[in-house]
Design a protein around this nucleic acid. Structure first.
Lengths: 353, 353
DNA sequence: CTGTTAGCGCGTTCAG
DNA sequence: CTGAACGCGCTAACAG
């Protein structure tokens, strides 16, 4: 039983393929009678167009613009970009092209500038990692006016919903992290630590803040008496880390559990290794190479992952699904909150880069 | 910069598209000179055919045969079948069709019979959940002779490698499970329990056995003094479960931790709920609805998942990638070993069924 | 308002 | 051994 084709519909409705095509695409120039008849049959037979043939015939070029924060190699965003590249390869037969540009996450002007360039280029779709809402919204409003679909990655902007969002539920992931850390800490733990990396009082991303809020909510609810210490390392002065950590650990000799909500747990992990501290349970985020090495080496107990590569891949895939294959799109896609340990890391999704 | 087409190659090599097509498919009827020239240019330009156009032109029907164990609704295999259906839908434009047949996992003759029917039908590809090697091998050897590619799902047969395998590394997942259970149990736990479902001495699947071996390996290495109790419930006499559990828990009043390696942890979980036992840490496998309810209710602490839906989906996808899109295939695909708790279950992949 | 037709990139004849 | 021509399902331009 072969698939129904336009030709079949045309025959049954006693019109030509041209007419069927017109009603399929809602174009004008069809009499009410014909339109009715064709739509009837379309529904009745549940016609599904062959989107590959369609894409082939329309023979269009699709250009996507991707806007991500600047970053160093082997960071979280590297994996996202790898996913973007993988997807453009996987869908290369659709004549797609993805141009990645970067903005400085600590300089809002940089975001505005980059976003203006994208607007001028008039791409067919946009994939962006939003910065603060007040800077993101003006940009996506322009995209709305130009009817350019856009996708949020990593972090969502509730006020201006995108075609689709891919990212983790940060709050819940912090909540989960607290559960797991306290499992490591044991019932009678009385103190834990939060390590941050801060630049001039700015944490750098909403994700980190939301994770910490979720974390504290769990602590408040289940371990209200457990004290939470904080250590703020400088985001741009790595050389001071060791000294600050030395001071911190000297000041808290009975502390045995801690967590970071950014992706730089390896800073603490490598410090623990250097100082030979073996009785400290450390948790962190994201499978950076250095984090994974700490995990395997035992200085990091748990890492929470959020599949950045898949986020990038799905972002591009979703643009294709929407623009080319005309599929229905899920607007909100929370990534799973995955717990990695030295025992299961080996079988987790391999990063591609 | 548009993609290179056959026509372009033909022009550059000063031959016709027919000739290029012949060398592309290694068909005969091309002079050495032409073949050399064309191959040269092919390499040089790194020609990548448009597989969608190719599939469209070849206009073939692909029929896949799927062979899975019989099962009841809402079991592990239900999710696998959902993945199969999802994939046939996703690739319906390629004119594919997947026929699922079942065998009785407790009756080897049933497997042979079903496999013979598949051989007679001569499908284009096969997706099967292997039973014991001595019964699986004769089948896949016939497939080999007929050059029909086959894919293993859930469990691998090392002796007869398939085109591809999707499943979890059971041994390591048991190893991981032990780590997590002992984390729940705490440092001074002296005893834990393994719950089984057994039919006439047969566990039912290799997976379960391998998980237990991995589990015991971890215990041996890290908790050699911890005693491991065992309770074998009858696989086909569910009505006796409660009585046996009553006896077991009465006999072990200080026991607070246990695990099942099959997907029926809910039997224990629902028992704990019924008896109001709240100080027992239970682990199990697979996100059956009843398991998930126990997890949310708190009678199951952790579940280990292995994405059965994705396994089914990827099995079909891989057959398409191989047969239609001529892509390179990964032969071994271990699924991640995912830990689910009541805190992160909400954001795990939704089952489709 | 409607039917016809020429492609899209590729596979497969069928003459020569 | 090779090129030309037609068709896959669909789009879009064109003619009526």
């Amino acid at each position: 039983m072969s698939r129904i084709r336009i030709k079949d519909i045309a025959q049954m409705a006693d019109v030509s393929v041209g007419t069927v095509d017109r009603v399929l695409h809602g174009r004008s120039g069809v009499s009410e009678a014909s339109r009715k008849r064709v739509e009837e049959i379309l529904k009745q037979l549940d016609y599904q167009p062959n989107m590959y043939a369609s894409a082939l015939a329309s023979n269009k070029q699709y250009t996507y613009a991707c806007l991500l924060p600047q970053h160093e190699a082997s960071e979280y965003w590297t994996d996202i970009e790898a996913g973007i590249r993988e997807a453009t390869l996987a869908y290369s037969d659709f004549n797609i092209q993805a141009d990645v540009t970067h903005y400085d996450p600590y300089d809002y002007h940089s975001f505005e500038q980059a976003s203006q360039q994208i607007v001028e280029k008039q791409p067919d779709g946009v994939l962006l990692a939003p910065t603060a809402p007040q800077y993101t919204c003006p940009f996506v409003e322009q995209l709305n006016q130009l009817h350019i679909p856009y996708i949020y990655i990593d972090s969502n902007i509730q006020e201006q919903p995108a075609l689709s969002f891919f990212g983790q539920h940060s709050h819940q992931s912090g909540f989960f992290a607290a559960r797991m850390l306290m499992l490591l800490a044991g019932k009678n733990a009385t103190e834990i630590a939060i390590f941050r990396k801060i630049n001039e009082g700015v944490v750098g991303s909403n994700q980190q803040e939301r994770r910490e809020i979720g974390f504290r909510e769990y602590m408040e609810r289940h371990h209200p008496t457990c004290h939470i210490w904080e250590l703020d390392l400088h985001a741009k002065r790595d050389t001071e880390d060791t000294q600050m950590l030395d001071d911190f650990f000297k000041a808290h000799p009975t502390l045995h559990n801690g967590i970071t909500f950014n992706s730089k747990a390896y800073i603490i992990g490598e410090y623990l290794h250097k100082r030979g501290i073996a009785d400290f349970n450390l948790m962190g985020y994201d499978l950076l190479k250095r984090n994974v090495e700490c995990l395997k080496g035992g200085t990091i107990s748990f890492l929470i992952a959020q599949q950045p590569t898949l986020q990038g891949f799905n972002g591009i895939k979703t643009l294709c699904d929407h623009l080319i294959l005309k599929k229905e799109i899920n607007r909100i896609n929370f990534m799973p909150i995955d717990l990695l340990t030295r025992e299961n890391i080996e079988f987790y999704y391999k990063p591609i880069n």
